[in-house]
Amino acid sequence: MDVFMKGLSKAKEGVVAAAEKTKQGVAEAAGKTKEGVLYVGSKTKEGVVHGVATVAEKTKEQVTNVGGAVVTGVTAVAQKTVEGAGSIAAATGFVKKDQLGKNEEGAPQEGILEDMPVDPDNEAYEMPSEEGYQDYEPEA
Rank of each mutant, 00 (worst) to 15 (best):
F4V: 02
F4G: 00
K6S: 03
G7F: 06
L8K: 00
K12W: 13
V15Y: 02
A17E: 06
A19F: 15
E20L: 09
K23G: 01
Q24E: 07
Q24A: 11
Q24R: 12
Q24P: 00
G25Y: 15
A29F: 14
G31W: 13
K32A: 13
T33K: 00
T33W: 14
G36C: 11
Y39A: 02
Y39W: 10
G41V: 12
G41N: 03
S42H: 08
E46D: 11
E46Q: 07
E46Y: 07
G47H: 14
V48A: 04
V48Q: 00
V49W: 14
H50Y: 14
H50F: 09
G51R: 08
A56D: 00
E57Q: 06
K58C: 06
K60S: 04
V63I: 10
T64G: 08
N65V: 11
V66M: 12
V66C: 06
G67P: 02
G67D: 01
G68D: 13
A69Q: 09
A69K: 09
A69I: 13
A69C: 05
V70E: 01
G73L: 13
G73M: 15
V74R: 01
V77Q: 02
V77M: 12
Q79G: 05
T81R: 03
T81Q: 02
T81V: 15
E83D: 08
G84K: 11
G84P: 02
G84S: 11
A85G: 06
G86E: 13
S87G: 15
S87N: 09
S87L: 15
A90Q: 11
A91E: 05
V95F: 14
K96A: 12
N103P: 11
N103A: 05
G106M: 06
A107D: 09
P108D: 10
I112V: 11
D115Y: 12
M116G: 03
P117S: 04
P120H: 11
P120C: 07
D121F: 14
N122G: 02
Y125Q: 10
E126S: 05
M127S: 04
S129I: 06
S129R: 04
G132L: 11
G132H: 06
D135I: 12
Y136Q: 08
E137H: 08
P138R: 05
P138A: 10
E139Q: 05
E139N: 11
A140N: 12
